[in-house]
Simulated assay, not measured.
Amino acid sequence: MKDEDWIALRPGAWAEPKTAVDPGLRLKAAQLLHPELVVSHRTSARLWRIETWEGGAPTGGADGPVDFTDPLLTSRRRLTGVHVHHLPLADTDVETMGRHRLRITSVARTLGDLLRSGPRDDALVAVESALTQRRFAETPRSPLITPTALADALAAPLLGGTRARQWLTLVDLGAGSPAETLARLRMRDAGLRPETQAEVRTRGGRRPGHGPLQRDRALPRGPPPPPLPGHGRLPPPVPHAAGDPAGAVRVQGVRLDSLSHPLAGKKP
């Protein structure tokens, strides 16, 4: 078939010559060979235009293994480039998408699977993306699900459900990107209490910037922290000026306890 220019999609599946092959067609080929499989987890998230974070980088393409769920618990063969999850699916957990008529897990089930399987940071990046408006290729995408609907989806008695419901309490709808979600979670793990999308203003009305803000801890000494993958390096720590109190923090050279911000002057 190669001699006749047929295109190999995966072992046992070929497309006619000159066929425009896209990731959806390759997924459909796998489903035609194994009709029990349903696109799920991170692969489903990408198709729903939900941001994920794998291996330290935001993902949105089709590189790497793809995820399917086998609700019949029958597929035990190893499939090249495929990660098969053996989980039950209700009829309401499965939808049909796109011109290839892919069978895919619903938004609620997709997020539930990511929360139940972890890791935490990857799952919360996806959850906060789905719950908020995001932009893909300059096109706005509205929120895909409500917090209430997601909480209802996590009520199912599945493995990992208790931990998933605990992680759901960490969601912040103020996050506007995967990097913001990760920054907030790392700050929280360090014992800080960041305020998402904090607006800082000087008494003169100037706005030095936005982002997760922690008022009551001094900036760390030593070398600057490593950058988040795919993002610029954070600025180096700003030395405290003479006369600053021990817990003072400076942002762009301005001491926070001199700002007209609701966090200024508050203790932890």
Rank of each mutant, 00 (worst) to 15 (best):
K2H: 14
D3E: 14
D3I: 12
E4A: 15
W6T: 08
A8T: 14
G12I: 12
A13D: 03
W14G: 02
P17R: 01
P17I: 03
K18M: 08
K18V: 04
L25M: 13
L27G: 13
L27V: 06
E36L: 04
V38I: 15
V39W: 05
R42H: 12
L47T: 06
W48N: 01
P58L: 09
G61T: 08
G61H: 00
A62V: 03
D63A: 15
P65K: 07
D70N: 06
P71M: 05
L73I: 06
T74G: 06
S75E: 13
R76H: 10
R77H: 01
R78F: 05
L79E: 03
L79I: 12
H85D: 04
H86E: 05
V94M: 10
G98R: 07
R101C: 07
I104A: 02
T105D: 10
S106A: 11
R109Q: 07
R109K: 11
L114V: 07
L114N: 08
L115F: 01
R116K: 06
S117K: 09
G118E: 02
D121R: 11
L124F: 07
V125H: 08
V127H: 10
L131I: 00
L131V: 00
T132V: 02
T132W: 05
R134S: 13
R135T: 14
E138D: 15
P140H: 02
R141Y: 09
S142H: 11
S142G: 03
S142P: 12
I145E: 10
T146G: 10
T146W: 07
T148E: 12
T148F: 02
A149H: 13
A151E: 12
A153P: 05
A155T: 14
A156T: 13
G160V: 10
T162H: 10
R163E: 13
A164T: 02
Q166H: 12
T169I: 00
V171E: 06
D172T: 00
L173N: 07
G176W: 00
P178A: 09
E180I: 11
D189A: 15
D189Q: 14
P194A: 08
A198G: 04
E199A: 13
V200R: 08
R201S: 11
G205Y: 08
G205V: 00
R206V: 09
R206C: 01
R206H: 13
R207Y: 03
G209P: 12
G211K: 05
G211E: 06
P212S: 08
L213P: 07
A218V: 07
R221W: 02
G222H: 05
P225Q: 02
P225G: 06
P227V: 03
R233K: 04
R233V: 05
L234D: 07
P235A: 04
P236N: 01
P236R: 03
P239C: 01
P239E: 02
G243N: 04
P245M: 01
A246P: 10
A246K: 05
G247T: 10
A248K: 01
V249D: 00
Q252Y: 15
Q252A: 15
Q252W: 11
G253L: 03
R255Q: 11
D257A: 03
S258K: 13
L259N: 04
S260Q: 14
P262C: 13
L263N: 09
K266C: 14
K267S: 15
